[in-house]
Design a binder for these strands. Sequence first.
DNA 1: GTAATCTATGACAGTCGATGCCATATGACA
DNA 2: TGTCATATGGCATCGACTGTCATAGATTAC
Lengths: 220, 220
Amino acid sequence: MTYGTLCQKGFEGVSTVGLRERKKEKTRLAILDAALDLFVEQGYESTTVEQIAGAVEISPRTFFRYFANKDHLVLWFHEHGKAIMLETLASRPQDEPPFTSLMHALRAVLADVAGSAPEDAERFLKLRRLMDEHPRLVGLSVAKGAETEREVAEVIAARRGVDPDQDQLSHLIVGFAMSTMRVGFECPRRDGTMSEVTHRVAESIELAERSLRPGWDLRH
Amino acid sequence: MTYGTLCQKGFEGVSTVGLRERKKEKTRLAILDAALDLFVEQGYESTTVEQIAGAVEISPRTFFRYFANKDHLVLWFHEHGKAIMLETLASRPQDEPPFTSLMHALRAVLADVAGSAPEDAERFLKLRRLMDEHPRLVGLSVAKGAETEREVAEVIAARRGVDPDQDQLSHLIVGFAMSTMRVGFECPRRDGTMSEVTHRVAESIELAERSLRPGWDLRH
DNA sequence: GTAATCTATGACAGTCGATGCCATATGACA
DNA sequence: TGTCATATGGCATCGACTGTCATAGATTAC
């Protein structure tokens, strides 16, 4: 599975997908690209939905049928990352130490991003540059990440056989894992290429693993 | 220093503060309390600024002179927490391991909240219950926390004598510390008393310290 | 192929959060 | 008391959304 999967909804053949569906996905990406370009040009706040809609020649009302709100343009790729994370997690052996599984999930997300189609990679990097200049977007992103964190914590708690509302360690494990992820993806500021991202994430994973006591995530 | 400090701006005597200042702080708290009650009653989203303003008999325009926006009602106590955190951090010896200093800062925030005046404690607990029911508010809170995290990371990097844009470990240290904080403060769901919060935060600090390798935050 | 049907879109009106501007009221201070 | 600073309210306006309805175009049934 690659980063572009979300945009294509599988390959069951044209007949299943239909003209309608394909056109919708094309429009969605057109909106996304137009918006990102406008954001880079004139900033996030000062770009209006009306402008974005105008750039792709749809009505503002239609814009909101593709993206629930303006923020979703920026948070959109999170959905995909979350999906990969949960899938990977489900595929790991139940008796693997949770943090190890989470690092595998993180690597899977990274591999997916790094291996995505050029246009998708472009979008990803553009978004990342955008966040560098707009702290508010980082906030949005982190908040979305916290949502994922909550979900993942439930999975981890279930796997450890404890009640997520009682067990702090499950939350701590996931919290540390998400911190590792954020540090890897967010702390850039050099050339901003995909290979840099890959390198940085690998580095932060290594750092985290070296920092934790062996077996810390196995206690009850 | 107690949690209420922000609401009173010191004790240099009435003459320095003046009627104006005192009235303003009284109004600010009145708005806050009215808003929290309305939020509990009818939810965050469905409470309008007009209603809040009406409840304290001010104009909506004036509301925005006390709180930059509706979200600030909820994020307000973060400012205070951040201030304590940075103060505590500054007061710790430069050669103390960074994570240890951060845990001291966390304990200071906790002590402040726990030792605040009854009305302030009430506000804090009410807010916390509110967040339990409104995921969006948790998101706001986390986003605000991310901002703090960034600032704190700069302090830690400076202290370690490294460039914050180059050194991932500084970010990881602060990320782990903030995760510990969130786990302690956010994972509640029992009686919702202040003593429970105290207990939970202490627990998460202990858990974090036990999980990390001694000296992990000293490497370069 | 035509009719019935489903659905994506646009237009419009309306709500709410937020901001700038100006007039006025009220505390501060000499 | 009079002057000055500032807190407030009212108004106009913008921009993000949302509900509703009519319509055009795609899909399916016959």
